[in-house]
Design a protein around this nucleic acid. Structure first.
Lengths: 241, 241
DNA sequence: GAATTTTGTGTATTTTTTACACAAAAAGTT
DNA sequence: AACTTTTTGTGTAAAAAATACACAAAATTC
């Protein structure tokens, strides 16, 4: 363990953290992964005990290649969820002088998108919990604000990148896709127009198997046509909604 | 002056800087404000002496309210240009472990848009220089990369915010406006279609006075219709090009 | 005054977006 | 087994937006 006061500088330095907003989608609602702050050993973690917060933690100056690496490492440590560094998109820096009562802490917020069904089992239920967007409690620090900014960033990004596909399971239905877009963009679409537009992009291919039953007409299963999708993406496409 | 080694921490802390990409437009070309790194007194500034770099500097942990304040303060100190904090838009964090050879330094890059004609006199020509986009030299640190990212961010932002108007003088002509859009988006537009589209937004109003003469037909002077523009902006408009 | 450069302008065609209603599939109910 | 309920799938006509395109007017240079 480090000796107290071991690290000295000629000028004051802030602490730097990386926090993550992890979005998941269960076919109906957008969800976010939060952790409950506990009274842990580290002196640096005694603020906001018992409150919910975004997963995140301090930059390891000697080991973390970038702050995205910090985000990935801390997410794994705090929630059990292991994502690759590339999956983190930067939201922005939150640097208000009083945002942490202990010392000056600058945080770099990120967001990541996961296929909820595939990772739900991997998250450590002891420490972390998935919250539906509507049920998110008040969060520690300025994490409420970070969450709002992250969501609005996602809302923007969905126009240029097919982020929806990162949230959906491999096999999905048109109603699910539409509902996801509606959840993120906070609007409603006409079902026919939505279907027409998606078909026009030619990035969906039908995928027949007997899958989940519902209480009504069974929707068609689709999967994502990777070739067409990659081509569209590299041509700099813009999903218009 | 601070006593060496006065500031101690239990864990290593990185240094944090804020750098700025200041874009200006002279009616023909997009330009960027750069500084020449000199051998200054501060030990912290002895790297990359003599090279061109983005203006920027270290966060003052005790005084800078946010990193945007750092960016504004340093820009003023290094170039003489005084901008309000609100004019800085965040580009992103650059945190690569080896990006500064001296110690671990995380920088938060910003960009700002200025009316070149109005601020040119205010920039300290001893230390700072405006470079046309095509003539930008190799820069210190990872500032080449920061510049590229800042430009692509500007390119994106122009779709959602009428950033063009922040770069143009109060009175401008349609060809100037078109050229600005073409410079940022790196495309060419048909003059008639461009004019039609701009008129359709109803954010330009004619402004007659005898202004700059050119070697050809005198273009119509416009100014920006603030009422209509603000209304459009608050309705969440999207400039389509 | 002739040549050159740059600006301003309108319309027809194509493409995209929008509005809109009914039938089929599956399950639950009586 | 028939009926009800819920959810899904589908096409076309009208409106709006984007595109393609050419000539005349203003000012300067020679």
């Amino acid at each position: 363990m480090a000796i107290k006061g071991q690290y000295t500088y000629e000028y004051p330095h802030p602490a730097v953290t990386a926090d993550s907003v992890v979005f998941g989608y269960d076919g109906k609602e957008l969800k976010v992964l939060l952790i409950k702050r506990g009274a842990e050993k580290e002196a640096s973690k005694t603020a906001f005990v018992g409150e919910w917060a975004l997963p995140g933690g301090f930059l390891d100056v000697e080991k973390d290649r970038t702050v995205a690496h910090t985000a990935a490492r801390e997410l794994k440590e705090e929630t059990g969820l292991k994502l690759s560094v590339k999956e983190f998109r930067e939201v922005g820096t939150f640097s208000d002088i009083k945002r942490d009562p202990r010392e000056r802490v600058i945080t770099v917020a990120h967001y990541a998108l996961v296929k909820l069904a595939e990772v739900e089992a991997a998250t450590d239920a002891e420490k972390a919990e998935w919250f539906a967007w509507a049920d998110i409690p008040h969060l520690a620090f300025d994490h409420d604000k970070i969450l709002r900014v992250a969501f609005s960033r996602l809302k923007q990004d969905i126009h240029f990148e097919p982020v929806g596909f990162e949230l959906l399971p491999e096999v999905f239905t048109l109603p699910q896709l539409q509902n996801l877009y509606e959840s993120i963009l906070e609007v409603k679409f006409d079902r026919r127009n939505f279907a027409n537009k998606m078909k026009h992009y030619e990035i969906l291919s039908e995928y027949s198997n007997d899958m989940p039953r519902r209480g009504t007409r069974t929707p068609i299963n689709y999967r994502f046509d990777k070739d067409n999708y990659d081509r569209l993406k590299s041509n700099g496409f813009q999903l218009e909604f």
